[in-house]
Lab assay of single mutants.
Amino acid sequence: HHHHHGSGALAALHAEGPLAGLPVTRSDARVLIFNEWEERKKSDPWLRLDMSDKAIFRRYPHLR
């Protein structure tokens, strides 16, 4: 159930192989992290948004 927010940013994801479903670039990863943060913020208003490279690598090590 993907609803768009204002920016309408869509992340490019790997379609197949071992990385299927994972973001292709760091900016794609940022979109995913932001979208998930927006969702989680509803139940956790104090949740901090962390889109640093460090956060991205921790989450998606293949982007190193």
Rank of each mutant, 00 (worst) to 15 (best):
H1N: 11
H1A: 14
H2I: 14
H2A: 09
H2P: 10
H2N: 10
H3R: 09
H3Y: 11
H3E: 08
H3L: 11
H4M: 12
H4E: 09
H4P: 11
H4C: 13
H4I: 11
H5L: 15
G6R: 14
G6H: 13
S7D: 13
S7V: 12
S7A: 12
A9D: 12
A9F: 14
L10V: 14
L10Y: 08
L10S: 15
A11I: 09
A11V: 11
A11R: 03
A12P: 03
A12G: 08
A12S: 13
A12D: 10
H14C: 05
H14D: 02
H14A: 03
A15V: 13
E16R: 07
E16Q: 12
G17P: 06
G17T: 02
G17C: 04
G17V: 02
P18I: 07
P18S: 07
P18A: 08
P18M: 06
L19A: 04
L19F: 14
L19K: 04
A20E: 09
A20N: 07
A20K: 15
G21V: 03
G21F: 05
G21R: 04
G21M: 04
L22V: 03
P23S: 01
P23E: 00
P23Q: 02
P23W: 00
P23F: 00
V24Q: 07
T25R: 06
T25N: 06
R26C: 09
S27I: 11
S27M: 15
S27R: 15
D28H: 03
D28V: 04
D28L: 01
A29Y: 01
A29D: 00
R30E: 07
R30C: 11
R30W: 06
R30A: 08
R30H: 04
V31F: 08
V31N: 06
V31S: 07
V31R: 13
V31D: 05
L32K: 03
L32Q: 05
L32C: 07
I33T: 02
F34A: 05
F34E: 03
N35W: 15
N35D: 06
N35M: 15
N35K: 15
E36Q: 06
W37T: 01
W37K: 01
E38P: 02
E38N: 15
E38R: 15
E38A: 15
E38C: 14
E39L: 11
E39W: 07
E39N: 09
R40P: 01
R40Q: 11
R40W: 06
K42Q: 11
K42V: 10
S43P: 04
S43C: 12
S43N: 13
D44T: 06
D44R: 06
D44E: 13
D44G: 05
D44M: 09
W46R: 11
W46V: 07
L47V: 14
L47Y: 15
R48L: 12
R48E: 10
R48C: 09
L49R: 02
D50M: 03
S52L: 01
S52G: 05
S52E: 02
S52Q: 02
D53Q: 06
D53E: 09
D53L: 15
D53M: 10
D53Y: 08
K54Y: 11
K54P: 07
K54W: 10
K54H: 10
A55F: 12
A55P: 02
A55T: 08
I56W: 01
I56V: 10
I56R: 00
F57K: 05
F57N: 09
R58K: 14
R58L: 13
R58G: 09
Y60V: 00
Y60N: 00
Y60C: 01
P61F: 04
P61R: 02
P61G: 02
H62P: 00
H62Y: 11
L63E: 00
L63C: 01
L63K: 00
R64S: 09
R64C: 08
R64V: 08
R64I: 13
R64F: 10
